[in-house]
């Protein structure tokens, strides 16, 4: 029982990342009808917003400390971050320590701008093109973005720790009546899960309770009729692209303490996120979110020793297996509307 709970917990944060990326993908596909293979790159750029902010906040003044030597025997250059000089070591240190959450504020405008540039610069020319063309061009864009990041940041993963306060894990097991150390879950992953839920609910609330959201929902359901009512839906859909980009970027920002960001992380998440979208039902927002969590948890279960010894390699293919089964038996996905994808 405890190992089941544990694997469910384990699947939640990765599932949350999948859900967020899939949500953005579905938003873009459902509004603009574009299959956006550069969405994983947006996740990566968000993560590197956190890296960038951490570097900026750690930007240091270099002073020579004659009493210490560096590796060549020259006097040691000591780096003191400017924020520590300005605000004192305590406040300054905390600012650097909290770079990842602070990066949320930084990432929102950056991601919206990046999304906007992507959409206006490249993707809008492909609205009417066949999906295969869209895939090729957005995939190419993803590779370019990846290489740009690699050029500036190198190929190594860059440690981006969470604030000190959140290091470590919480013993859920004890709370539920199990023995100690049977169900533990890191604090930051809990925070990530909560953050993801807030974002997801935010997007749904925005769509459900604002007028803008109502127009977008109407446009997703019946684009032609919305045009008949005088509404220029393209403009609104472009804004949704920015929203989807921001969601993916924020998912990336907060993920950095879990897996140190590297230039390749976008691709790692992209393919699986697409599988999530297909399983959840293309065009269904709740389907994307639900499928994201389900597949994250499923992947977690498939990685247990029991699973990998019974069916070696199952953890690498389980998600694809599920996708194949879904596509064969219920092609519209778990929550897709009837008729979609059923030709």
């Amino acid at each position: 029982m405890d190992s089941i709970i544990l694997q469910v917990l384990n699947g939640l944060d990765k599932g949350a990342a999948y859900a967020l990326i899939a949500l953005g993908l579905t938003l873009i596909f459902g509004t603009l009808g574009v299959v956006n293979f550069a969405h994983g790159a947006l996740f990566m750029i968000g993560a590197f917003c956190a890296v960038f902010l951490q570097r900026v906040l750690s930007y240091s003044r270099i002073s020579i400390d004659e009493s210490q030597k560096d590796f060549l025997g020259n006097p040691l250059k000591v780096e003191t971050p400017f924020v520590e000089i300005w605000f004192g070591p305590d406040v300054g240190g905390s600012i650097v320590d909290w770079s990842v959450p602070l990066a949320i504020l930084f990432a929102i405008p950056v991601m919206i701008a990046v999304g906007f540039a992507m959409e206006r610069g490249l993707i809008k020319h492909f609205y009417k093109r066949p999906h295969a063309d869209q895939i090729l061009v957005t995939f190419g864009l993803a590779i370019v973005l990846q290489e740009i990041i690699k050029y500036f940041y190198g190929a190594n993963p860059i440690p981006t720790p969470s604030p000190e306060a959140f290091i470590g894990s919480y013993d859920f097991g004890v709370m539920l009546g199990f023995d100690a150390n049977r169900i533990i879950y890191p604090y930051w992953r809990m925070i990530y899960f909560a953050f993801a839920m807030v974002l997801i609910f935010g997007v749904f609330a925005f769509l459900q309770f604002t007028t803008f959201g109502m127009v977008v929902r109407a446009g997703m359901a019946d684009r032609e009729t919305v045009g008949l009512l005088g509404i220029d839906i393209d403009r609104r859909f472009t804004i949704m692209f920015g929203v989807a980009a921001a969601v993916a970027g924020l998912a990336g920002v907060m993920y950095t303490p879990i897996v140190p960001p590297n230039y390749h992380m976008g691709m790692d998440f992209l393919v699986l996120s697409f599988v999530v979208v297909v399983v959840g039902g293309m065009g269904s927002l709740p389907g994307a979110v639900l499928a994201g969590f389900l597949l994250g948890i499923l992947e977690s279960f498939a990685s247990t020793t029991w699973a990998t010894t019974t069916l070696p390699g199952i953890n690498q293919i389980i998600i694809y297996l599920v996708a194949i089964i879904v596509l064969l038996t219920r092609p519209r996905g778990l929550m897709g509307r009837r008729g979609v994808m059923e030709e």
Partner: peptide
Amino acid sequence: RIIPGLTVEENIKLAQIVE
């Protein structure tokens, strides 16, 4: 072409978003 997911009133309100 009534928009699914919207109420009767919302369908009408949709028509009044733009002058």
